[in-house]
Design a protein around this nucleic acid. Structure first.
Lengths: 189, 189
DNA sequence: GTCTATATATAGATAGAC
DNA sequence: GTCTATCTATATATAGAC
């Protein structure tokens, strides 16, 4: 309830750091990078986030909130629409030359603070559970067809999209679209 | 042909740095980490590898050589054996708590030296081409069954395994086995 | 809330002795 | 080939003025 006004700087820091993590990685970005972009001294960033880990946790909490909002916004839609909405987030990401937060932080898992790790676990499990739900609903309604357990299929799809948004930068940008389309195609009879 | 003897230190540096990259990430590991493990001063490491990037390139060339050797060693085997041999590398990796070199470096793509990037591209494309060949051969011999193009299917499998060896550290270690088994299962009729 | 100034640590890298 | 010593740069973080 407090701090309703003047939230601009704090949010700006979160958004810029988010972009930096998903563009350079957590260990490669620095407070100076934020400083250069936003026009604020590094010491001032520490006023909003005492440590780099605190900033990391804040970014994850933002993503968790955004995920919950997305989930809610398509709750009444068909499983196919839900799945396509999920995949479209990665299409946007790809077009912006970024990778996803989970994919960026997971490779640094052994070097990040325990608090970041915890929130990353929360986000990843929520996302996986949601994809599992979408697949279950789609199977029940005979929209999706697959042989394995819904959670196993959700793991397949999540790993496909998290990795291809990164790998396609090296193999071929079109590979992103190929994988995205194949995910959909393999769910059809 | 030169330097056949006394290669111990240089190879040790490569092997330890390899482990460090696949455990902590390229930007998180330092020459001091190697120094602590191998018992050699950081300045001495620079004698063998002038820059950190030179070391990175050497590690990638080692992986490319090892890949070529693996490919050759199973050339006469059935497609299923080849695929299982490929997947078993990731099983070993998983049991050692490591991730793969491609998966580790790809998330740092925007921060690594151009020379490393080039070699990473070589390794990734070679691996992808090999998986594609295996799938083509398997399809021709009616051992594997899949609807999409072999290269598209290879992208699906590669992204599955590269990402699950990382993600399963957060979701559930058993998820690695689930994905590995699902890859095989989905290739059967 | 942002600044200047500074503390402290660590990074990659080089020079030159042995 | 490895060492000591050092350079330069940059990192996260803190103290205290404004």
């Amino acid at each position: 309830m407090y701090q309703i006004y003047n939230m601009g700087t704090k949010e700006s820091i979160i958004n810029i750091a988010d972009d930096l993590i998903r563009g350079q990685g957590f260990n490669a970005f620095s407070f100076k990078d934020i400083s250069n972009t936003i026009g604020i001294k590094t010491a001032s960033i520490h006023y909003h986030f005492p440590t780099k880990s605190d900033l990391g946790v804040a970014i994850l909490k933002k993503h968790i909130e955004q995920f919950e909002a997305l989930k809610l916004s398509v709750a009444s839609k068909s499983p196919m629409v839900k799945l396509e909405r999920f995949l479209s987030i990665y299409s946007k990401m790809k077009s912006e030359g970024k990778i996803c937060l989970i994919g960026s932080l997971i490779s640094d898992l052994n070097t990040i603070d325990e608090n970041i790790k915890t929130e990353l676990g929360v986000l990843t499990k929520k996302l996986l559970a949601w994809i599992t739900e979408i697949l279950e609903e789609g199977k029940r309604k005979a929209i999706f067809h697959f042989k394995v357990a819904p959670r196993a299929k959700a793991l397949m799809i999540l790993t496909n999209i998290v990795a291809i948004v990164q790998l396609s930068r090296l193999t071929n940008d079109d590979d992103f679209t190929i994988v995205k389309n194949t995910i959909i195609k393999e769910l059809k009879p």
